[in-house]
Design a protein around this nucleic acid. Sequence first.
DNA 1: GCACTGAGGTTGAGAGCTCAACAACAGGTA
DNA 2: TACCTGTTGTTGAGCTCTCAACCTCAGTGC
Lengths: 160, 160
Amino acid sequence: MTEPRWLSESEQEVWRAYQTATKLVGESLDRQLQRDSGMPTTYYEILVALSEATGRELRMSELAEFTKSSRSRLSHAIARLEENGWVTRRSCPTDKRGAFASLTEDGMGVVRAAAPGHVNEVRTVLFDGLSTDQVKQLGEISAAIVAQASKGCPSDPCDE
Amino acid sequence: MTEPRWLSESEQEVWRAYQTATKLVGESLDRQLQRDSGMPTTYYEILVALSEATGRELRMSELAEFTKSSRSRLSHAIARLEENGWVTRRSCPTDKRGAFASLTEDGMGVVRAAAPGHVNEVRTVLFDGLSTDQVKQLGEISAAIVAQASKGCPSDPCDE
DNA sequence: GCACTGAGGTTGAGAGCTCAACAACAGGTA
DNA sequence: TACCTGTTGTTGAGCTCTCAACCTCAGTGC
């Protein structure tokens, strides 16, 4: 790292386009979910993860891994979702340090109500603008980035 | 919107990979900049935009457009950067509503000091994991997403 | 049993973002 | 001049995120 490996002209263009695109997509989704369902994207992702888990509950650490969230963020989020009555906490019987988060009926209802609008927004801002080939490429590129990122910190991309 | 246009199995995979990848990239960069330069990515982008402008200053509205930021966010950010002595505000002589933000010498120094580490991180988390073809594809895909997003709200992707 | 190290979670403070409300001014029309 | 509408930018409140400190407990070695 003695000499900075600057970006070429074309790499800079790609980088800036990438930044703009991801920012637009992220903010569109955030606005849509906040407007229609009164919650940020991160909370929605938590609820979805729980809704797909067997028994609709997960250990906090697993939930953090699924949602690529830090333990701290998740803890704050679950506290907030619990206030709303969408999630409850349960301590783990076999490991007294541990805790489960589980989705309530109300929470499941919120997910079901939010899903159509959310999916529609995803289509509108992302898929509708891309060709079939580009969608495939985007999948491969994303996977490559994830793989690359995982090399940096083996088996633990999060926290401290 | 009478019937939700659900995502296919493969689209879901792409969508999840995309979310994970963009989250990892964004958080890596945020952590790196915060750790090494004591500021979030959004602030760095503001300073870079100013550093590249003629006279190293821009109208607030132009700066908001360049950085894809809301007026509100920008206003808060500039206030913070002004406290640090990296930016100064100047009112516009021809339009009394308007304001210019301009980069100070200190601010320019901060950008110069931050750039190498930032660029290196961009390479590490993004470009190093992709083939030459994939970089090209990512550029095209990003441009397509930006174009698609601009269709939604012609010539103004921000605020209110 | 006792100490030590690490893992699982929580907490509080500080910081940035969003949203809505607002103030000040520009440009046009009557 | 007076009014009306749209633009530019700021502000404050509420919310989420990050970071570091902390607590509790599990597993290991002695």
